[in-house]
Amino acid sequence: QGDIVVALYPYDGIHPDDLSFKKGEKMKVLEEHGEWWKAKSLLTKKEGFIPSNYVAKLN
């Protein structure tokens, strides 16, 4: 089961498979690959890669 993270900063995706998000948006982490994680937005239901240093895990 994936962790839920919250965006600390907004992110505008650079690549087509990036997931753009707004500050405060919550996402479910699907896979962790070093600095880039695959996640699904709980708001938009879209999936893509996010920079892990832009988010914090919720406990």
Rank of each mutant, 00 (worst) to 15 (best):
G34V: 05
F49I: 08
D12A: 13
E32V: 15
Y9Q: 10
G34F: 04
K28E: 14
S52C: 12
M27R: 00
Y11W: 14
W37G: 01
N53E: 10
H15T: 09
D18G: 11
A56T: 12
N59S: 14
K38W: 15
W36S: 06
N59Y: 11
P51G: 02
L30I: 10
Q1I: 15
K23Y: 07
I50R: 01
V6H: 05
L30Y: 07
L30N: 03
N59H: 13
Y11F: 13
S20T: 10
Q1L: 14
Y54L: 12
M27E: 00
E32G: 11
E25G: 01
L19W: 02
V5S: 02
K22A: 10
D18M: 12
F49V: 07
V5Y: 14
K26M: 15
K45E: 14
F21V: 05
H15G: 13
K28G: 04
D17G: 15
K45T: 10
A7M: 02
K57Y: 14
L19I: 04
I14V: 13
I14C: 14
G34H: 05
A7I: 01
L42N: 03
K38Y: 15
G2Q: 10
G13C: 06
V29N: 01
E25C: 04
G34T: 05
I14F: 09
K22R: 12
K45M: 14
K57E: 06
I50Y: 01
F21C: 03
V6W: 06
K28F: 13
Y11L: 03
S52Q: 11
K22W: 05
D3K: 14
L58H: 07
P10L: 07
E47R: 07
A56I: 15
T44Q: 04
V55Y: 03
H15A: 10
W36C: 09
G2W: 13
L58V: 13
G34I: 04
F49C: 12
K23F: 07
A7F: 01
I4R: 03
A56H: 10
L19F: 04
I14M: 11
I14K: 12
P51S: 04
P16G: 08
V29A: 03
K28V: 15
N59K: 11
W37N: 04
K40D: 00
F49H: 06
E25A: 04
L8H: 04
L58S: 07
N59R: 10
G13K: 08
D17F: 12
L43A: 10
L8Q: 05
Q1N: 12
L43G: 06
P51Y: 04
D12N: 13
G24N: 06
A56N: 06
L19T: 02
K38A: 05
L30S: 05
V6L: 06
G24E: 04
D18V: 09
K28R: 14
Y11K: 03
K26V: 14
K40L: 12
G34K: 06
A39I: 06
D3S: 14
L58D: 08
E25M: 03
K23G: 05
H33S: 10
P16S: 09
A39Q: 00
I14E: 09
T44P: 00
E47C: 12
L42V: 06
V29C: 04
K57V: 11
L19V: 02
I14R: 12
K38R: 13
G24Q: 03
G13A: 14
G13S: 11
H15Y: 12
P16E: 10
H33T: 10
M27I: 05
D3M: 15
I14Y: 09
V6Y: 11
S20W: 05
A7R: 00
V55A: 05
G24I: 00
V5G: 02
V55F: 14
A7G: 08
K26W: 15
G24P: 00
K45W: 14
K46W: 05
H33N: 12
V55S: 01
P51R: 05
A7L: 01
A39C: 13
K57F: 13
Q1V: 15
Y11E: 01
P10A: 14
H33W: 11
K38T: 06
P10G: 12
Y11D: 00
E35F: 15
K26G: 04
G13D: 02
W37A: 06
L58P: 07
H15L: 09
K28M: 15
Q1P: 13
E31A: 11
V55R: 00
L43S: 10
G2T: 10
F21D: 00
A7C: 05
H15W: 11
V6E: 06
Y9P: 00
V29G: 00
L30C: 07
Y54E: 02
Y11T: 00
P10N: 15
W37E: 02
S41N: 05
N59E: 13
G24H: 06
Q1R: 12
D3Q: 14
S20H: 06
E31W: 10
S52A: 13
K22G: 08
F21T: 00
K28S: 08
Y9D: 04
A7S: 05
D3E: 12
K22C: 10
G48Y: 02
I4K: 03
K22Y: 07
A39T: 04
D3A: 14
K40C: 12
Y9L: 09
D3P: 10
N53H: 13
